[in-house]
């Protein structure tokens, strides 16, 4: 997947100005960066929910913005996406949630759907929760169910939007190992958007760091740790002041007093 010189504005604010990066097939790519740099926006651009103002994003040789609605939906079938909140359908049971993509896109009979859903839920360790409704599950479990739903159609690529936010250490460990295992077992191309840097770096093969509307760093996690770039260093070590300022731009405080 290639991202070429993408420019994106929301109203007057420039979010990306000439973003260029690439995501290798079959690897885990981490997209990191300070909050508010629009990492989630990038995922929406990749999946074609938003269109860039300029530049081009191509997935597997197909240019996303030029695709017709039908072709876009076909492309999305090959992508899975795990949303920040899980985004399970609240009125459906866990089983129906995971079965949903299968019912929409395949003609499998109920028996087969039951089988596939059981397998997917087994993979995330929640087969026992089959008949519960999402609100009866914890946040971490909801995310795992959503993950099972995202892989229901055996996609070639899966995108995670902040999968580790608000997880206790155990839930975090479970999700980390799941992401890693799915990637290895299914040969998925994985894109993880996160600002939980250490956790993400521990499983990533490739890192793209976004800051100030551009790519600040692209390469392997090892290279990132060795990078001399002050911005990368600030982010890695969590220093309060540096290229990203502690103070929101303002006039000197002496003037205000």
């Amino acid at each position: 997947m290639e991202i070429n010189n993408v420019v994106f504005r929301r109203d007057q604010r420039v979010i990306y100005d000439g973003l260029t990066a690439s995501v290798p097939r079959g690897k885990i790519t981490a997209i990191v960066g300070p909050s508010g740099t629009g990492k989630t926006t990038l995922l929406r651009l990749i999946s074609g929910q938003l269109n860039p103002d300029a530049g081009n994003i191509s997935v597997d040789g197909l240019s996303v913005r030029l695709l017709k609605r039908k072709a876009l939906f076909d492309l999305r079938r090959r992508m899975g996406m795990l949303f920040q909140s899980g985004a399970l359908f609240t009125e459906l049971s866990v089983f129906e949630n995971v079965a949903f993509p299968l019912r929409v896109h395949t003609d499998l009979d109920d028996e087969l759907i039951r089988l596939v859903v059981s397998m997917k839920l087994e993979a995330v360790g929640l087969r026992g929760a089959l008949d519960l409704i999402p609100s009866e599950l914890s946040g971490g479990m909801q995310r795992r169910v959503a993950l099972a739903r995202a892989i229901a159609l055996d996609p070639e690529m899966i995108m995670y939007d902040e999968p580790f936010v608000g997880q206790d250490p155990i839930g975090l460990g479970v999700l980390l190992s799941l992401v890693k295992r799915l990637n290895q077992a299914l040969g998925l191309t994985s894109v993880v958007v996160s600002h939980d840097l250490q956790e993400t770096l521990s499983i990533a093969d490739h890192v793209i760091m976004i800051a100030n509307t551009r790519v600040a760093f692209e390469g392997s996690p090892q290279d990132m740790r060795l990078s001399e770039d002050s911005l990368v260093q600030q982010f890695l070590h969590g220093r309060p002041d540096g290229p990203v300022h502690f103070h929101f731009p303002a006039s000197p405080i002496e003037d205000a007093l």
Partner: peptide, 14 residues
Amino acid sequence: ATEQLASLEMIGVD
């Protein structure tokens, strides 16, 4: 708000 609509789109359902 809970991204269910976006999630439908990603599943390929309008």
